[in-house]
């Protein structure tokens, strides 16, 4: 439980690991777009792969792959999952 509450941004998530959305610091249309795709506080999200040059990154959310640029992902705050929490 020690590291469970550390807040990071989604863009810092290492490839292959999962985390939980805490909040979206984005605004405007992009914020709504991302919310509508089911990236809402509490959602579990896993980073799956990066583009050939390191950006964008594709994330697995609710069974679908969604690619986001690192600038945008850095505005999404997440918390690491503690051991034993359910994975996506």
């Amino acid at each position: 439980m020690k590291n469970a509450e550390r807040i990071n941004s989604l863009s810092d998530l290492s490839l292959g690991s999962a985390c939980q959305i805490v909040s979206l610091e984005l605004s405007g249309l992009l914020r709504r777009r991302i919310l509508d795709l089911g990236i809402v506080p509490g959602t579990l999200i896993r980073s799956i792969r990066r583009g050939p040059s390191g950006d964008p990154t594709a994330y697995l959310v609710r069974g679908t792959l969604i690619a986001l640029r690192s600038e945008d992902a850095s505005q999404i705050l997440v918390r690491k999952l503690s051991n034993g929490e359910e994975c996506v």
């Binding site: 992009l30 795709l37 964008p56 594709a58 679908t64 792959l65 969604i66 690619a67 986001l68 945008d72």
Partner: peptide
């Protein structure tokens, strides 16, 4: 540049 939200079906 604004953003990219791209679904990979």
């Amino acid at each position: 540049p604004s953003s990219l939200v791209l679904e990979l079906p």
